[in-house]
């Protein structure tokens, strides 16, 4: 990864750049182009800080109580159910009245492998603005250590 020395350092830009590279790669390699309406749900971003691993699970409109999240060694599993049509707030949903139906609905289950440094004993998760943010501490031995340069 090239170092970015500019002041406008935007960590999300790095996510974007990586994604663009991956997109290009997949466009070349895969005959399966992503189609509108084929929603991956939930989408997941993983980032690594010196002392923890952060997992962003983009899960809009779920009831957090219906989501099951578990971490076994470095495997994070998420499963649950989203009833997309509940947000319509209509008494009886008639399928023929949909002009467009792109949002994911139904049961979901995903497993993602995290860096091996994660410590399953230090997990916190919070649901904010439709994103489940999971913060997992690293095992002591894997934490990045600062090296001080002493003046002679």
């Amino acid at each position: 990864m090239p170092l970015n020395w500019t002041w406008e350092w935007d960590p999300f830009k790095e996510f974007e750049r990586l994604q663009e590279e991956l997109d290009r790669l997949f466009e070349w390699m895969s005959p399966f182009r992503p189609l509108r309406g084929e929603e991956v749900y939930p989408r997941i971003n993983v980032g690594e800080a010196p002392d923890k691993v952060l997992v962003y699970i983009f899960a809009p409109g779920v009831d957090p109580k219906s989501v099951e999240l578990s971490l076994e060694d470095n495997l994070l599993s998420i499963s649950g159910e989203r009833k997309a049509e509940e947000a319509l707030e209509v008494e009886e949903v008639k399928p023929e009245r949909f002009a467009r139906r792109e949002r994911f609905s139904g049961r979901f289950s995903r497993v993602i492998s995290l860096p091996e440094s994660v410590d399953p004993a230090q997990v916190e998760a919070e649901y904010r603005n439709g994103i489940i943010v999971v913060s997992i501490g690293k095992k002591e031995a894997h934490k990045a250590k600062k090296i001080e340069v002493k003046a002679a």
Binding site: P11, L18, Q19, N45, P50
Partner: peptide, 20 residues
């Protein structure tokens, strides 16, 4: 616009959502 962004100390490991 996505409000929450990872801090500067966070480097991307795996990405499915790009942009804000």
């Amino acid at each position: 616009t996505i409000v929450e962004t990872p801090g500067e100390e966070v480097s991307p490991e795996y990405v499915e959502v790009r942009g804000r």
